[in-house]
Design a protein around this nucleic acid. Sequence first.
DNA 1: CTAGACCTTGACGCCGATGTCAACGCCAGG
DNA 2: CCTGGCGTTGACATCGGCGTCAAGGTCTAG
Lengths: 128, 128
Amino acid sequence: MRIGELAEKVGTSTRALRYYESQGLLGARRSANGYRDYDELDLRVAREIRSLLDIGFALEETRPFVACLRAGNAAGDACPDAVAVYRRKIEEIDDCVERLHAVRAHLETQLERAKKHKEKTCPRLRRN
Amino acid sequence: MRIGELAEKVGTSTRALRYYESQGLLGARRSANGYRDYDELDLRVAREIRSLLDIGFALEETRPFVACLRAGNAAGDACPDAVAVYRRKIEEIDDCVERLHAVRAHLETQLERAKKHKEKTCPRLRRN
DNA sequence: CTAGACCTTGACGCCGATGTCAACGCCAGG
DNA sequence: CCTGGCGTTGACATCGGCGTCAAGGTCTAG
């Protein structure tokens, strides 16, 4: 299938697909006329990339998943490298949530203060 | 005081301070030689900006706080506009945390799956 | 006088994942 | 043949918050 069709099936733009290719994530055979020609595996790869990106992964982080699919596995997360990325991501999320909670708590505090001293008092925050 | 001193006191760079000025957040009187000359209020404003940025606010979002200080208030969050930003931010944080939790849960699921079917099975995610 | 530490404005670089436009080739239908 | 809808590569634009370099002016100490 050609790039337009793939884009539609995957739910993204042709520009994005070409970008993935430029980053070495999506290979492409060429038809006689020079058009990119994708097969079912490419479709699965593209979908894997999109779903990971949608979740919040960086393009780079999808690489192990792509490699895993290309290696013949039925799922992109069937390989240890990919699983490792899952774990890293979970840690990142935990850290992020922790910081957000801290900030949230801080903001609540500020809200309280702002209410009480309806006009004055000069606090000061900080983090990071 | 001059920009270098202010930067040091606030804990940021002169570049950043000039940037805030370019965005209309930090006014500046000029000495005879053309150097920027800051007073105590500017110091407080700059600190307010920095602390909000450190917490995760966008520069634009600090505007109400700056205006509040400039209006003569002892605290940047003494005005309703600023407080509103606090509230918005808290909501944003809640949304963010919620999504992160969802993703986290999803990732845990994938991890389980990946363990069980040590090699095959093709799932598919999605969000956003 | 000169070095050097400060200041000035202006402008380009960065990061990530595309959007968008340009200028062109390929191919099918009327 | 021509139009229009696909494809191609290339390259610049976007967003935020600066970093960093360039090319100069200012002021102070030695």
